[in-house]
Computed example of a mutant assay.
Amino acid sequence: MELLENDLIEGSSGRFGKRLIYSQRGRKTVITRRSSRKRDPNSIRQQVVRETFAEGIIYARGVIADPELKSLYQAKVKDNQTAFNLAVSDFCKAPQITRVHVFDYTGQIGDKIIVRAVDDFKVVSVELKITDSADSLIEEGTAVLSPNGADWIYLATATNPVLAGTKILVSAADLPGNVTTQEVLL
Rank of each mutant, 00 (worst) to 15 (best):
D111K: 06
D111H: 07
D111W: 04
I113E: 08
I113Q: 07
I114Q: 11
I114W: 04
I114R: 13
I114H: 01
V115N: 04
R116C: 02
A117V: 08
A117P: 05
A117H: 05
A117R: 06
D119G: 08
D119H: 05
F121P: 05
V123K: 10
V123H: 07
S125V: 02
S125M: 09
V126W: 01
V126R: 04
E127S: 03
K129Y: 00
K129D: 01
I130R: 15
I130L: 13
T131W: 03
D132I: 13
S133Y: 11
A134L: 13
A134W: 03
A134C: 03
D135V: 09
S136A: 10
L137G: 03
I138D: 04
E139S: 07
E139N: 06
E139A: 04
E139K: 10
E140R: 13
E140I: 00
A143G: 11
A143E: 06
A143R: 06
A143W: 02
V144Y: 00
V144G: 00
L145G: 05
L145V: 07
L145E: 14
P147W: 00
P147D: 14
P147F: 00
P147A: 07
N148D: 15
N148E: 12
N148K: 07
G149W: 02
G149C: 01
A150V: 15
D151W: 04
D151K: 08
D151F: 03
W152V: 14
W152H: 09
W152Y: 13
I153H: 03
I153S: 04
Y154P: 03
Y154G: 06
Y154H: 05
Y154M: 08
A158G: 04
A158D: 12
T159V: 10
T159N: 13
P161W: 11
